[in-house]
Design a protein around this nucleic acid. Structure first.
Lengths: 219, 219
DNA sequence: CAGATATATATTGTCTACAATAAACATTCA
DNA sequence: TGAATGTTTATTGTAGACAATATATATCTG
């Protein structure tokens, strides 16, 4: 864990801790000692504490008053909950699109293309690379939610995205990439045709399958 | 704005600022000067800054790096967005209840009773009193969302609740209380009968009506 | 030897002070 | 007189130090 640059300390720390929590280098349940961490990162405690508050809202860490800050534990139960929450957001997203009769989603389409390029060219480490890069979160879904132009919905998704990334990272296998990709393509297609209800069904099936997959891997 | 007590400074500051932003004593767009605010509250800047980070996640304040922290502006557009987001969450809530076949909601029912008692006994200032009290947010809806036992969904609702309270406070008129109360009762009844789809419809109508009401008042 | 209590240590919570940056003002030049 | 630039002032960002509390350890007692 190398030192940070000079400017925007709090935000930099947030990004760093996010990555390391997602990758498990900061393990679930691990205590984050303020003095140790701040000295290791070459910063002081106040900005670190501000970073904790931000990460706390994402449920990446849990802060217990007068005790300390801990990396949030992962569990099958929480996994079910967060994917159910994601489903609800994306259901709402599709409803929004339907209400506005939006069918063309250029941003989502280009995100999909980008992902396709990446999966065809890169090695098995692509997920790890993606996580390490500045924006480790699934572009497709973010762009989809962003297309609603509902800032609160977008905010919700950004809140759960880091934890979603934790589960995905923990259970990563390259095999499923093509399946996921294919289903994303189908979904975009269904929306383009205005078949919003079908898109929802596909989404639900997709999530249910994925949660089962994660559950099996987690045991 | 009186001084604070000694313990749990950050959380106390959050609560205080929440209330004052909701009531408009800290007006939309107003700059929150760290030095001025901290001295006025009798605290130092670090915990105030931590409080800012928490309020930032609720979109109660907007923090611009190296410029400062501002009370988030309200707008008709944002109002539409947040109530659409609320609808999505509550739709998801009802879906959860349906999936688990939950019909009895004792917590929600008692919240409703409590509200009824309050509306019948108290004066026109009840809303203001409610806001000033420790838990100013609409119990009915919180208890409803909590009944899903989905911590992420609950987190979402708690995120939007303060801003919902701002719109409600801004446009408060005692007349609508009985109507709102009545519709809550109906909704609880529909859920008890397992008529989840009807509950959804009622919810949508309720929200659409309320947003229209708010829009008119805001002009 | 086990349990409870007291002490010591480590860690969080908070405050004060310094540094860097942005904004406001005045001054100068066209 | 207006605009641009330099200087001053105010405010945010960060660091380091102090205080309070919780935890761990050691000692004492039953």
């Amino acid at each position: 864990m190398e030192e940070l640059t000079i400017t925007g300390v709090t935000e930099s720390v947030v990004q760093y801790l996010r990555i390391y929590i997602i990758e498990g280098e900061l393990a679930p349940g691990q205590k984050l000692n303020e003095l140790e961490l701040s000295s290791r990162l070459g910063i002081s405690r106040p900005p670190l504490r501000e970073a904790f508050r931000i990460l706390e809202n994402e449920n990446m860490v849990v802060s217990i008053p007068r005790k300390g800050c801990y990396v949030t534990e992962l569990s099958i139960d929480d996994c079910r909950q967060i994917y159910r929450a994601r489903e609800i957001i994306e259901y709402g997203t599709i409803d929004c699109l339907k209400a506005k009769n939006i069918r063309d989603l250029p941003e989502v389409a280009s995100a999909l293309e980008l992902a396709e390029q990446r999966s065809s060219t890169s090695s098995d480490d692509s997920q790890i690379e993606a996580v390490r890069s500045r924006n480790p979160f699934p572009y497709f879904h973010i762009k989809l939610v962003e297309s609603t132009e509902n800032n609160w919905l977008i905010r919700f998704y950004n809140t759960i995205a880091p934890t979603l990334a934790r589960y995905q990272f923990m259970c990563y296998v390259p095999d499923i990439l093509s399946k996921v990709q294919e289903e994303h393509k189908q979904m975009l297609d269904l929306i383009k045709k205005g078949k919003y209800a079908s898109a929802k069904k596909l989404l639900r099936a997709h999530i249910n399958w994925y949660v089962k997959f994660l559950e099996n891997r987690m045991k």
